[in-house]
Design a protein around this nucleic acid. Structure first.
Lengths: 331, 331
DNA sequence: TTGTAAGCGTTATCAT
DNA sequence: ATGATAACGCTTACAA
């Protein structure tokens, strides 16, 4: 590997001069700088980021930690954040936790070990209180939380208006003439699920409907668990479900079908996240979009701001209900 | 940040002893090692991987470079490779190129800058000859190519049996009674598309059908381009399409629908990659699966073997046709 | 078994 | 405008 020493020797100058030229310092003669840059190019020099970080204490790498990279929401957040961060000269490292606390701890340690300058994280379901996050990261990196956040952790947060989203989704089902609306509620240790449930309650109560805890089905997040919960919801007399995820919505939809009921005629379904399949399948599924590209951009900008020493704040992104066939009862 | 110096001072020993204890060297007294480990835990010590790599010249990080992380195939390859690499003590950094050559160059430079020990890559469509890959990486890291590979680059390769896959897909359409079978062929600069096209030709010729270049539609990879190509295929008299991707298959399917033809009755469709939506939509789409978890594992193992100095070889993974409704003409 | 000392490649602080 | 020198945190011969 070519080092600045090699360039220095080849040019008969010292490493300091080469370093200054390479980092664009004004304290070098223009002609010297040009010679250095030409030689660097010629020798195929690549700056050793590890040595640079070690010496300067400044890392230009940001780690993004998400439960799963193959979710429409997360992959779009990442792509969007990437393009902003790249503009500011940061590289992005993507890590996934598979919803497991142990994996979250492992990747956080890896990122800290590699002394990243910042961490953007949406916590795993398996992580119920987030205490270890600040414990592991400490002061070594700026932490930006997005989507799934813990209020008791300091630092910037970018979240959806989950209460508003749950409220809209439920109101939409009511407006389409569904009466017994249940909810696949996820796990309440995560803000996103707790808030969507709160929005659901708010919409019901506002419509003069008594909240019925028996129509709340917890821990239904995957396709399988969504199917099981869907079956229970049907037995409990539901004629519609607001699902806090699209995979659980898919499972619920299959349960409804297997029960011989029609969608949207007999049963309405709203999902969440705007997974690709919701718009492709038949019937297409009404879904609550999270505006992932906006979140990614805002989270990246929050990081940049935090590095610049600006005050940390909480940014709220509205959700948007994408109305499709699965709730088309009266149309 | 706590360093080994801090631990050394606290214990009245030297940094060397601490380093040896931490790295599990046998040349320390058991009691000393225990004391060091306890103190490290107590002080919240985290090894500085950059300093370690800088000094030892050995990086325990592997970069995985893929076109897009939100594709069923790539996300599964990554997850599978991750679990193998983690077992061997490697951390995984995920990068995406968005199919663009410039992004591929950028992430490769980042990885080289950060002196990763290895790079697993499936090249971008925008990368047509791969010359820059070895140019940028040089001897600084082991390169493992998977899925989309360049034969003229040295090193381990893990690929699908794309010829066999294309052959099977086409034979399947023939066996279901389709006569005018076209192909959405992708770009021939990529081995995967060139090979699938070769398999298609082989199946046709074996069946005594003259290969018709007018039924080959290039550059149809996305949903939009698949739709356009689908329309052209219908006009050209096709009654079936073998699509070398699932997104183009989706577009083609929509073109067929919009043309008032029924699937599979009037028109048969085979896709490639087993994207989630192919099994969920209606009609479900027959798709050629790439066994991503096997590829990920094999690519990771190829990396481990290469680091251990073993001979580089080419591994071929069979493809599997998952037969669904879109080719169900005679069933 | 432990300590000493040098060095990985870079940058920052001096001095010239 | 450039050079000399030290230091970032760690590993590793070599010495004791």
């Amino acid at each position: 590997m070519v080092t600045i020493q090699d360039i220095a020797k080849a040019l008969g100058v010292t490493p300091s001069t080469v370093s200054r030229s390479l980092s664009g310092s004004p304290r070098v003669k223009a002609s010297t700088r040009e010679a250095v840059l030409r030689k660097a190019e010629e020798l195929g020099y690549v700056r050793n980021a590890m040595a640079s970080t070690l010496r300067s204490g400044k890392a230009n790498v940001v780690g993004v930690v998400v439960p799963r990279i193959n979710r429409e929401f997360f992959s779009n957040v990442i792509s969007s954040a990437e393009s902003v961060l790249n503009e500011y000269g940061y590289s992005v490292l993507i890590c996934q936790t598979h919803e497991r606390l142990e994996d979250e701890i492992r990747v956080l340690k890896t990122l800290v070990c590699n002394r990243v300058g910042g961490i953007m994280i949406s916590h795993a379901i398996g992580d119920t209180d987030g205490s270890h996050i600040s414990e592991i990261v400490g002061k070594s990196a700026v932490i930006v939380q997005f989507d799934r956040v813990f209020d008791n952790l300091p630092g910037p947060k970018v979240i959806n208006d989950n209460v508003g989203g749950g409220y809209e989704a439920t109101r939409h089902l009511l407006s389409r003439g569904y009466h017994q609306i249940g909810i696949l509620a996820g796990v309440v240790s995560s803000n996103i699920y707790a808030d969507r449930l709160a929005g659901y309650r708010k919409a019901l109560e506002e419509a003069g409907i008594v909240f019925n805890p028996d129509l709340v089905f917890y821990d239904a997040i995957q396709r399988n668990s969504g199917y099981q919960a869907g079956m229970k919801a049907i037995q409990a007399g539901c004629d519609a479900l607001y699902c806090t995820g699209d995979y659980s919505a898919l499972g619920a939809l299959e349960a409804v079908r297997d029960s011989g009921l029609s969608i949207p005629g007999d049963f309405g379904i709203v999902g969440t996240a705007d997974e690709k399949f919701t718009s492709i399948m038949s019937p297409s599924v009404t879904s609550l979009s999270q505006h992932p590209r906006d979140m990614g951009r805002l989270a990246a900008e929050a990081f940049i701001a935090a590095v610049a020493g600006e005050e940390t704040s909480e940014v709220v992104v509205p959700m948007e209900l994408l109305i499709r066939e699965s709730t088309g009862k009266n149309t």
